[in-house]
C-alpha cells in the first residue's frame, strides 16, 4: 500500500473516498483551523480534541510516553510501509486503548460531518460543491418531467442522527431518496437544511432548464430574464407548471377530479402560467396589498425581517445580466 511519493493520504481525503461518501466535499484545513468556524461543536462531539487531531492528521500530545511518540515520528518519516488509514491511526494511537480509538474514529466522522455542514455554506465550500455539481456527482432528479435535472445533497434536519441524506431537485423543489442504498447510511445533517437553497441563491445564473454540458447558457431570452424575488423567472421551478403536470387518462379521456380516484395532487406540480404573479414585492409596490409572511431570504443571502424594498433586488440583478463577467464571477464557468 506504500505510495511512491511517501506522503500518505490525509484523513480527510480517505474519508471522502470511502464508498457512500461521494457527496462530501474535502473541507480545507484552513477552514477547520479557524476556531471561529467550529464554534459550538465542542459540546456536540465526545473526545472533541482527539477527534479534531485525527481529522487534521495531527500527532496527539500524549504526556506519559513522549519517547514512544518520538520514535514513531522517526519511523513515520522514513517508513513507507504504511498500510492504509486504519493501520496508520492504530500506530499513531497505539498508546490509547482500543475502545478509545474507536470512539475517536466515530467522533472524528461526526465532527467532520458537522464541520462539513458549515463548510459547504461558506464561500470556498459552496464553490467546491458547485464543481462537484457540474461533474454530476450528486445524480439527477428521478421525476420524469424534470428531464434529468441535477440534484443537490441536503439534510431534512441540522441535527445528526435524525435522517439520512436526501437529494434536492432545483427543478421541482422537492426532495428524493438517493437511488443507491449506500447513501442510506449517510447522515443528512452532514449536509444540512441550508445548502440546497443557498446554492440556488449563490449561483442564480445556472440554467436549470438545461442538463448536461449546456446548463450554463447565455441569458438571452428576454421573457425569462425577469427577476423575481432574487431568482430568474426561468429558474423558479422550471420542472413545474403547464405541460409538466401529469394528467391521468383512461383510453385518452382525462380522469375527472370528481372521481374517487381522480387527481388530487396536481397543485404540487403546478406553477402560475404568468410567473410574475409570484412577484409579491412588485405587487406590493403596485397595489399596496399587505402580506404577513415577512421572514425570508433576499438575494444577498442575508436574512431580512420585514418587507424588502420592492424592486431593489431586481434592479441590482438587471444591472448585471447578460454580462459574461457576471457568470464568470461566480466561478461556474469552469465547464465551458
Amino acid at each position: 500500500m506504500s505510495t511512491s511519493s511517501g506522503s500518505p493520504e490525509s484523513w480527510i481525503s480517505s474519508f471522502c473516498s470511502l464508498l457512500g461518501h461521494e457527496y462530501f466535499a474535502e473541507v480545507s484545513e484552513e477552514f477547520i483551523e479557524d476556531d471561529f468556524n467550529l464554534t459550538g461543536l465542542q459540546s456536540q462531539v465526545t473526545m472533541y480534541k482527539e477527534a479534531l487531531e485525527m481529522i487534521l492528521d495531527v500527532e496527539p500530545e500524549d504526556d506519559e510516553d513522549d519517547d514512544d511518540e518520538e520514535d514513531e515520528d522517526e519511523e513515520d518519516i522514513s517508513g513507507d510501509g504504511r498500510d492504509g488509514l486504519a493501520g496508520r491511526h492504530e500506530r499513531r494511537h497505539h498508546s490509547r486503548i482500543a475502545s478509545d480509538l474507536s470512539v475517536i474514529e466515530s467522533s472524528a466522522e461526526m465532527l467532520y460531518g458537522l464541520i462539513h455542514q458549515r463548510y459547504i455554506c461558506s464561500r470556498a465550500g459552496i464553490q467546491q460543491m458547485s464543481e462537484k455539481y457540474e461533474l454530476s456527482h450528486f445524480g439527477v432528479c428521478p421525476r420524469t418531467n424534470c428531464n434529468q435535472t441535477r440534484t443537490l445533497p441536503v439534510g431534512l434536519s441540522d441535527t445528526p442522527g435524525e435522517d439520512t441524506v436526501k437529494l434536492f431537485c432545483p427543478s421541482c423543489l422537492d426532495v428524493y431518496v438517493p437511488p443507491n442504498s449506500r447513501f442510506q447510511t449517510v447522515d443528512g445533517a452532514f449536509f444540512g437544511r441550508t445548502f440546497g437553497a443557498l446554492f440556488l441563491l449563490t449561483f442564480p445564473d445556472y440554467d436549470l432548464t438545461k442538463s448536461g454540458n449546456e446548463q450554463l447558457a447565455n441569458l438571452t431570452r428576454a421573457d425569462e430574464m425577469v427577476n423575481i424575488n432574487g431568482m430568474w423567472a426561468r429558474n423558479i421551478a422550471p420542472g413545474l407548471g403547464k405541460g409538466r403536470v401529469y394528467e391521468p387518462k383512461i383510453y385518452g379521456f382525462r380522469v375527472s377530479e370528481l372521481a374517487r380516484s381522480g387527481p388530487r395532487m396536481q397543485w404540487l406540480r403546478k406553477k402560475p402560467d404568468e410567473i410574475t404573479v409570484l412577484d409579491e414585492a412588485r405587487q406590493f409596490g403596485e397595489d399596496g396589498e399587505s402580506d404577513d409572511d415577512d421572514e425570508s431570504m433576499d438575494v444577498s443571502g442575508r436574512a431580512v425581517a420585514g418587507r424588502r424594498r420592492p424592486g431593489n433586488a431586481r434592479l441590482k440583478r438587471q444591472a448585471q445580466n447578460g454580462s459574461p463577467m457576471a457568470i464568470e464571477a461566480n466561478g461556474a464557468e469552469s465547464e465551458l
Partner: peptide, 21 residues
C-alpha cells in the same frame, strides 16, 4: 411537502410559489 430554507428562513421565490400552490 419540502420547503427550501436558508438558515431557517424560507427562500422568497420558492415560498411565494408554495403559497400559490
Amino acid at each position: 411537502r419540502y420547503i427550501p430554507r436558508v438558515y431557517g428562513f424560507k427562500v422568497h421565490a420558492a415560498a411565494a410559489l408554495v403559497r400559490w400552490q
